[in-house]
Simulated assay, not measured.
Amino acid sequence: MDSGKTDDFYDVYEVFSKRSHKGDFQHQFSLLAPNADMAFIMAQENFMRREPVVDIWVVKRSDIRRMKPEERDIVQRLDNKDYRLTKGYGYLRKKWRQYEQKMLDEKEIMSWAEDRPHKEKRQP
């Protein structure tokens, strides 16, 4: 794994930004800086004045942990989640269509009024 250290003075930092309050953070770029405060200032100067953002994260690359190969094998075993898919409910569309065809529509209901003989008003 890359430690993110380039020499004894600079560290590699990753910059993430969020464009709206409801949006997700997205990785934007990497930068070299001597410390976290300087990395944050550089990220603000290089990115925030060009793009409209509501928040940024600046993270030292060496602080980001990635999965080891043996951990990936465990995740692949846990990836069998067919029970979460809705492919078992495919018959419902056909069943719903049959139900809708049996339902009475507005034209049919209005035709009933035409079939009924009109009562004539009685004269007193």
Rank of each mutant, 00 (worst) to 15 (best):
K18E: 00
D82F: 10
K22V: 00
D79N: 14
E120Y: 15
E14C: 13
Q123T: 05
N80L: 12
G23S: 06
L32R: 04
R66P: 03
F16M: 06
R116C: 03
Q101E: 13
D2C: 10
Q76I: 06
K94E: 04
S17C: 08
V58S: 00
N80I: 12
A113H: 15
I64N: 03
Y10K: 02
A39Q: 00
H21V: 01
K95M: 05
S62R: 05
P34E: 11
V15R: 00
V15E: 00
K5H: 02
V59T: 01
V53K: 01
K60V: 02
K94C: 00
K68S: 09
K94G: 04
S111G: 08
S17M: 06
R72A: 09
L31R: 02
E114K: 15
V12K: 05
K68D: 08
M103W: 09
N80D: 12
V58N: 01
K94R: 11
D105Y: 13
E45T: 10
E14S: 06
K95A: 04
R93K: 14
Y91G: 11
H21F: 01
E114T: 14
Q26H: 01
L78H: 10
M103P: 03
E70H: 06
D2V: 03
K22E: 03
P34R: 15
E108T: 15
L78C: 09
R50C: 11
K68T: 04
K87F: 01
Y13K: 00
K18S: 00
G90N: 15
S17D: 00
D2L: 07
Y91E: 11
P117A: 15
G4K: 06
D55C: 05
K81W: 04
K68V: 08
K87V: 08
W57D: 03
R61I: 02
D11A: 12
A39N: 00
Q76W: 02
H21I: 05
K94L: 01
K119E: 15
M42Q: 09
K81M: 08
A113N: 15
K94T: 03
Y89D: 11
K68M: 11
F25Q: 06
L92V: 14
Q26P: 00
V12C: 04
D115S: 12
H21D: 01
Y13N: 04
D63K: 10
P124T: 07
R97W: 09
L85I: 12
M48V: 09
E71D: 12
N46E: 05
R50E: 12
L85G: 09
A39G: 00
D63Q: 07
